[in-house]
């Protein structure tokens, strides 16, 4: 198994302030890592730094063993794809046209598409389950469909590493399951490495191999979800009473609010 991405004591500064520091992890082929933590803990910052959008002020970010800053933008784009939190839906674009933008790092000087490029676009659309939407205008699609189209665009890059910033935050339960199921399938079947920023800890625990829990720009926990998601650590990290249960079907941790400490969130006043 090859290491696709590694962080070693990474610090990222925004406007002179260190937003994250001392971040160390490794992500290899076929692995899915969830990036979790409270709002403002630096999840998106790490995702953006991993995608080469922010430089490391200290420490080292490596893409397949080479320092990320020394990798050319084109080479980086052929290895690593990134889908932003709010994927763009540029007006006038059909789904196929948007997915085809993912071929850019593979095009030559004049930007002409070869049959190989067209085949890659179709394959990406099939894998992301948007093939039947091909000629629909992107603006007409639902949020879940747009997210899938963005992932198809990222897959058209033929990356080894996929970085998704909160792919499920605006989606209903069905689309959440289908997006994360897609990521899981790609990692299992094609050995794709994936870094996924996600808020929902229970959902993260279900589909990721490892979980990086951030608090105040530093690592609060790192490892398999069952090891990281313990009640004392979560209560400290999120500053609210929480309990960790077991999923009835697979024993994966499920995080719920505890009524001890703040009974007022319950509709029964916590007296039951």
């Amino acid at each position: 198994m090859n290491t696709q991405l590694s962080f070693e004591g990474v610090e990222v500064r925004l406007g002179g302030r260190a937003v994250v520091s001392g971040v160390t992890f490794e992500l290899g082929d076929g692995e899915v890592m969830a990036l979790c933590g409270p709002n403002g803990a630096g999840k998106s910052t790490i995702a953006r730094a991993a995608a080469g959008l922010l430089p490391a002020a200290a420490g080292a970010i490596r893409l397949r063993g080479s320092a990320l800053r020394s990798v050319s933008p084109g080479e980086r784009a052929r290895t690593c794809a990134y889908v932003a939190q709010q994927p763009a839906a540029p007006p006038g674009f059909a789904v196929r046209e948007l997915v085809a933008l993912g071929r850019l790092p593979h095009l030559g000087l004049f930007g002409a598409e070869s049959p190989k490029d067209r085949a890659a676009v179709e394959r990406a659309m099939e894998r992301a389950g948007v093939f039947s939407l091909g000629s629909r205008p992107i603006g007409e699609l639902s949020g879940g469909e747009q997210q899938r189209v963005s992932i198809a665009r990222a897959l058209a890059q033929e990356p080894r590493l996929l970085i998704l910033d909160e792919p499920t935050s605006n989606l209903d339960l069905r689309f959440q399951a289908s997006i994360l199921g897609l990521v899981r399938r790609l990692s299992r079947d094609e050995g794709l490495a994936a870094l996924v920023v996600i808020h929902d800890l229970s959902l993260a625990a279900l589909f990721c191999d490892r979980l990086l829990l951030l608090a105040d720009g530093g690592i609060a926990g790192y490892g398999p979800p069952a090891e990281v998601l313990t009640a004392p650590l979560l209560v400290r990290t999120y500053g609210t009473p929480l309990r960790v249960l077991s999923h009835p079907e697979c024993l994966s941790p499920v995080v719920v609010h505890s009524l001890t400490g703040h009974p007022h969130i319950a509709n029964q006043g916590g007296e039951a």
Binding site: P73, R76, G102, L104
Partner: peptide, 16 residues
């Protein structure tokens, strides 16, 4: 074309 996706995604597609 890539710029239509927004600056960040265009940058990750290899555009300076």
């Amino acid at each position: 074309n890539a710029l239509q996706l927004g600056d960040d995604e265009a940058a990750t597609l290899g555009v300076r």
